[in-house]
């Protein structure tokens, strides 16, 4: 694997291999010396054209734990705000000898352009592009689910037979798309729950069932309920009447959490809008994996960087 652009390109074996490597990386976090010499001398550039806290910091921690050099580059305060194109930025980074570029961009497909253009000869990791994909988030979600369900016996296993309900703004969510491809590759069944206005025009060809009714989805007793953030920055049309209305119909409140089976888990990729798509009670309950997801994010990103940057690079 040279780039990680989309979870659609990831085979079941590759996905399980990355999750297994992440298991080993997770152990590093519990050691006194939280560092491995594996990527010494490699340079990882975090190229962020959109705001991010946890993804950027997570990639930075991951790269540093593997002893890579990290350069953080955000569009604000760089020549991008002077109108520099993606091509020129990429070629500048190539001239400085970047081995991997972690890119977040507002335009869907920007990482693919970077990977296919030949502007830069580095491994490209998609850290979220527009409303397209966010593969490392899906991998860490799969890792979190697998760890909750199988515990210490997780290694080598997929998510066969696990039922997942993804709830909220499917239309704009790159997290939902990446998760849909990856979770089904791993053997899970996915149900999408959203208001009709926040679903894509067509979900034909998506390996998922679709419903508008959260209560029915909850009563079916899914193993995993994955809440999506209402992305205020992308709410440029009247997708729902108002926040209270949304919260009442599609928010995961305390009462709905109470109806879930005790073994079900509640996920959220963060940052959370408490009181909108998820109540504080749900977010802080024992069933919530929000903080585990953040901790697992570092392990997964270490595994991805290791997977892309170690080994011979095929020409």
């Amino acid at each position: 694997m040279r780039h990680l652009l989309s979870t659609k390109d990831v085979s079941r074996d590759e996905a399980i291999a990355i999750l297994d490597i992440a298991e080993d990386m997770a152990d590093v976090a519990h050691r006194e010396v939280k560092k491995l010499p594996t990527l010494r001398g490699k340079t990882v550039v975090n190229l962020f054209f959109e705001d991010s806290t946890r993804t950027r910091v997570s990639f930075e921690v991951a790269a540093k734990r593997l002893s890579a050099d990290v350069i953080n580059f955000s569009a604000k305060g760089s020549s991008v705000s002077k109108g520099e194109s993606l091509k020129d930025t990429a070629q500048t980074l190539a001239a400085m000898g970047a081995d991997a570029v972690v890119i977040r961009h507002g335009a869907s497909g920007a990482p693919r352009v970077l990977a296919d253009s030949g502007w830069i000869d580095a491994g490209i990791v998609n850290a979220g592009d527009g409303t397209h994909e966010h593969p490392t988030q899906a991998l860490l979600d799969a890792f979190t689910i697998r760890k909750r369900l199988h515990g210490a016996g997780s290694r080598g296993r997929g998510l066969d037979g696990v039922s997942v309900a993804i709830v909220g703004d499917i239309l704009h969510s790159r997290v939902a798309r990446s998760n849909l491809w990856l979770l089904t590759t791993l053997g899970a069944t996915v149900q999408l729950v959203a208001p009709a206005t926040l679903l894509p025009v067509s979900t034909a060809g998506w390996p998922a069932t679709v419903t508008y009714d959260l209560d029915a989805a909850i009563d079916a007793g899914p193993d995993v309920v994955m809440m999506l953030r209402i992305q205020a920055e992308r709410m440029n049309a009247a997708f729902f009447p108002n926040a209270r209305e949304y919260s009442k119909q599609w928010g995961l409140d305390d009462e709905r959490v109470g109806r879930l089976p005790a073994a079900s888990i509640v996920m959220h990729p963060g940052p959370m809008n408490r009181g909108l798509e998820i109540s504080s009670g749900a977010a802080d309950s024992a069933q919530s994996t929000v903080l585990e997801q953040v901790a697992n994010g570092v392990s997964i990103r270490m595994a991805v960087l290791y997977h892309l940057l170690s080994g011979t690079t095929e020409a």
Binding site: A17, D20, H307, S310, G311, T312
Partner: peptide, 9 residues
């Protein structure tokens, strides 16, 4: 590590 295919730990 950089001379061989990626090894799984």
């Amino acid at each position: 590590l950089s001379r061989n295919p990626t090894r799984a730990p």
